[in-house]
Design a protein around this nucleic acid. Structure first.
Lengths: 153, 153
DNA sequence: TATTGTTATACTCTATAACTATA
DNA sequence: TATAGTTATAGAGTATAACAATA
């Protein structure tokens, strides 16, 4: 199919559409995490640990496309506040991570605030469209995450 | 309507979906701009100027949610390479911006590369769904941009 | 030799504020 | 006084590299 009418058309760049949305959501998450005394990244880390207990630090960082050194200060703080624990795994090099009950509770309360902020935005879409839009976004996210490590060509 | 079944459910955070997509698109734009010797922001600035000639620096920065001071070095470089021109407007304080022919051409060539990268991603969505997904994203982007300056509550 | 966690360093990006000139 | 552009500075965020311990 040599003919693709809109491929050379001048719609907006996709990034120009998603960037403002991501920026808003970032602020939503920051403002949702702040009342619990966490940064956005601390929430993100704790959220992954709560959802998938027993991962090591590298695995958590990878899931977030975060870095293995920046995660350390976050874990230190989360551990200090007893929202999660590091425990030695079978491999004595690595720390396995678990959220405490308090940690799980904090994630739940922050997430509730995030949902409220998100709903304000998603309310712009017709109810019916909303779920399909989210499903498509999930598809694109999976593709983006897969393309991250794999070669591009 | 006190009952919203999925509002307390545990779907992924929306940011967790969009962030990887935005990250990928950012890389796509960087890699598309690089062969023309431009940074992502330089392309973005030039792109706005080409599409809307005669804006001043502040207006261009605002459209991109960019900053009025960081735009300066970009404009200096773009002007040095004769991709755009600053001209004095009726208000002698402000510079009005226009893209040169060469600038328009560069935007076109970078955009073509961006489209190819985007299509690779969007190919994951069924053809029919694609346009509606983009339209919805446009709706959300408009809402996000509007909510930027307006108060949040 | 490779991997995990950690620390240190340098660099880029961004936000803030001050300054000049116009209005 | 307010606005547009500019410049300088400080801070946050990020990437890179080195190191110790374990495998």
């Amino acid at each position: 199919m040599p003919e693709a009418p809109d491929s050379a058309g001048d719609r907006e760049d996709l990034l120009a559409l998603l960037a403002p949305v991501a920026r808003l959501l970032r602020r939503v998450e920051e403002e949702a995490a702040a009342p619990s005394g966490l940064s956005m990244w601390q929430y993100a880390v704790l959220s992954v640990v709560a959802a998938a207990p027993g991962l090591n630090q590298r695995q958590v960082a990878d899931r977030l496309d975060y870095s293995t050194n920046r995660i350390i200060a976050d874990l230190d703080e989360l551990e200090r506040r007893e929202l999660l624990r590091r425990r030695p795994g079978p491999d004595r090099r690595s720390n396995l991570l678990d959220a405490t009950e308090a940690g799980v509770a904090v994630v739940r309360e922050i997430r509730a605030r995030i949902r409220r902020g998100e709903e304000q935005l998603l309310a712009r879409l017709p109810r019916a469209e909303r779920e399909t839009w989210l499903a498509a976004a999930r598809t694109l996210a999976d593709a983006a995450r897969a393309g991250r490590s794999a070669g591009d060509r």
